[in-house]
């Protein structure tokens, strides 16, 4: 799925925030980042951490709720953490923001074609098939995952796993890590 219509930019009045944080891959980093939100009583709605193409650099996507001034505080305080390389509040930027979901449904051979057809509509696919079950992979916005789950519910969802969102802006500039950007 590509194209401008997938790019979400939050608007004024909406207090959902998305931060992209590049960090050094060191023990305790996640703890420090999470603690910073916890002590200010901000719930983290979703969190994703994973490696990047650069050695020793991890990338986090954090979704939380904060008004503009709280978001500024969070950004400035994230920058204060020694292992944090770069912080971007991408909330108002055009970007692609996706989650990955794995959904196991209890369908045997009989109803399988029916389900596979449904998946096509959602741009999802089956990644594992057994005599009694189907594991479905879906990438999209959380709302799309929710829709798919709704449709699959009657077939019997055994398990649903969903990652935190990963976000990427449309900017062609390579994010400069480290001393590049002052808060």
């Amino acid at each position: 799925m590509t194209g401008i219509d997938d790019v979400a930019a939050s608007t004024e009045g909406d207090d959902r925030r998305t931060f992209v944080v590049h960090v050094e891959d060191r023990p305790g980093v996640l703890d420090r980042v999470a603690s910073l939100f916890r002590r200010r009583a901000h719930n983290i709605d979703s969190l994703h951490v994973g490696p990047t193409h650069e050695d020793g650099v991890s990338r986090m996507t954090i979704e939380c709720r904060a008004d503009a001034s709280q978001a500024k505080r969070l950004e400035a305080n994230l920058y204060k953490l020694v292992p944090v390389l770069r912080v971007d509040d991408v909330t108002t930027l055009e970007r692609v923001q996706r989650v990955l979901a794995l959904i196991k449904v209890a369908v045997g051979q009989a109803r399988r074609p029916e389900v596979l057809q449904l998946l096509e509509v959602f741009g999802a696919r089956a990644v594992d098939v057994g005599p009694e079950m189907l594991v479905i992979e879906m990438t999209g916005r959380p709302s799309q995952v929710k829709q798919l789950a709704g449709v699959l519910e009657p077939y019997g969802i055994v398990e649903l796993a969903q990652t935190g969102a990963v976000a990427m802006t449309r900017s062609v500039e390579k994010p400069e890590l480290g001393r590049g950007k002052a808060a």
Partner: peptide, 9 residues
């Protein structure tokens, strides 16, 4: 050298 640490401004 700590790549993310900015003691000076």
């Amino acid at each position: 050298c700590l790549p993310g640490y900015r003691p000076e401004h």
